[in-house]
Amino acid sequence: MTSDIRRAAVCPGSFDPVTNGHLDIISRSARIFDEVIVAVLVNQSKMGLFSIEDRIEMLGEVTKPYENVRIETFQGLLVDFCRAQDAMVVVKGLRAVSDFDYELQMAQMNIGLAGVETLFMPTNPVHSFLSSSLVKDVAKWGGDVSAHVPDTVARRLTDRLRPQ
């Protein structure tokens, strides 16, 4: 039985930078949904290591193998972005119980505000400790993060954080 209903999901985040943990969630979502919209949050009050344009470019490079993934940016409420994209599911990766506490509150608010559902996807245990902040800290001090980020991201981190 086939369905004409398009199943779209949003994977939101700052992706500063994208890690293998993010990519794991995106790729698994791409197997489940017809379309996955990777939504890069534009937070004017927070200065990231990489510009929004750089993050979009890196995400575009690392998600190229997935024909049903596209990259967009958003500001404001995630539920407004979801409605504008006609996607009523948000996919969030969970690394630990501490993630769940915060994400559950967000999920309950999103369902209450706009009927947007949240799918919690457990992170592959290989990536359970991984965060963009940790990757940046390790890279800043010259540590090797190549096992934790795609090659293009590792190169950009090295270039960005190399002492001038």
Rank of each mutant, 00 (worst) to 15 (best):
101 D>L: 09
1 M>A: 14
10 V>Y: 05
108 Q>E: 14
53 E>F: 05
107 A>Q: 07
10 V>S: 02
125 P>Q: 10
102 Y>A: 09
49 L>E: 03
84 A>G: 13
2 T>G: 00
35 E>V: 14
94 L>G: 01
126 V>W: 08
119 L>I: 09
123 T>V: 13
128 S>M: 12
31 R>N: 10
39 A>Q: 03
84 A>Y: 08
17 P>M: 07
129 F>E: 06
111 I>S: 07
125 P>L: 08
14 S>P: 00
94 L>E: 08
6 R>T: 11
160 R>I: 06
157 L>S: 02
67 E>P: 04
135 V>W: 00
106 M>W: 03
13 G>V: 05
15 F>S: 02
128 S>E: 11
135 V>K: 01
106 M>N: 13
125 P>R: 13
14 S>T: 15
97 V>W: 04
18 V>D: 00
7 R>F: 00
12 P>I: 13
54 D>A: 14
104 L>S: 06
164 Q>C: 08
65 P>H: 13
45 S>K: 12
144 D>P: 07
155 R>E: 14
161 L>N: 12
58 M>N: 04
44 Q>T: 07
143 G>F: 03
55 R>E: 03
24 D>N: 15
148 H>C: 10
127 H>M: 04
160 R>T: 15
6 R>W: 03
121 M>D: 06
36 V>K: 04
159 D>G: 02
157 L>M: 10
11 C>T: 01
6 R>M: 14
149 V>A: 03
13 G>W: 05
107 A>E: 06
152 T>N: 13
154 A>H: 13
119 L>R: 05
113 L>T: 09
117 E>T: 08
65 P>C: 09
151 D>A: 15
35 E>R: 15
46 K>V: 14
16 D>H: 05
155 R>V: 09
129 F>Q: 08
62 V>W: 03
95 R>T: 11
114 A>L: 04
117 E>D: 14
162 R>H: 15
28 R>Q: 13
162 R>K: 15
60 G>Q: 09
97 V>Q: 12
155 R>L: 13
159 D>H: 13
35 E>A: 05
54 D>P: 06
28 R>H: 14
58 M>T: 01
58 M>Y: 04
105 Q>G: 09
35 E>C: 07
145 V>L: 04
84 A>R: 15
74 F>W: 11
110 N>L: 10
43 N>P: 01
155 R>D: 14
157 L>P: 00
141 W>C: 05
123 T>E: 10
150 P>A: 11
130 L>V: 15
38 V>R: 04
63 T>D: 02
124 N>M: 07
67 E>Q: 12
136 K>D: 05
83 R>V: 15
5 I>P: 00
85 Q>M: 15
106 M>Q: 15
99 D>V: 11
66 Y>A: 05
23 L>W: 02
42 V>Y: 04
97 V>M: 13
106 M>T: 10
163 P>V: 13
46 K>N: 10
16 D>Y: 04
155 R>A: 12
119 L>V: 14
76 G>A: 12
27 S>H: 09
158 T>E: 14
118 T>Y: 03
138 V>P: 00
142 G>E: 05
145 V>I: 11
147 A>C: 09
86 D>I: 11
139 A>L: 01
122 P>F: 07
137 D>C: 02
129 F>D: 08
26 I>L: 11
164 Q>W: 12
100 F>P: 00
55 R>L: 08
128 S>F: 00
115 G>H: 11
105 Q>D: 13
147 A>R: 13
150 P>Q: 14
47 M>E: 15
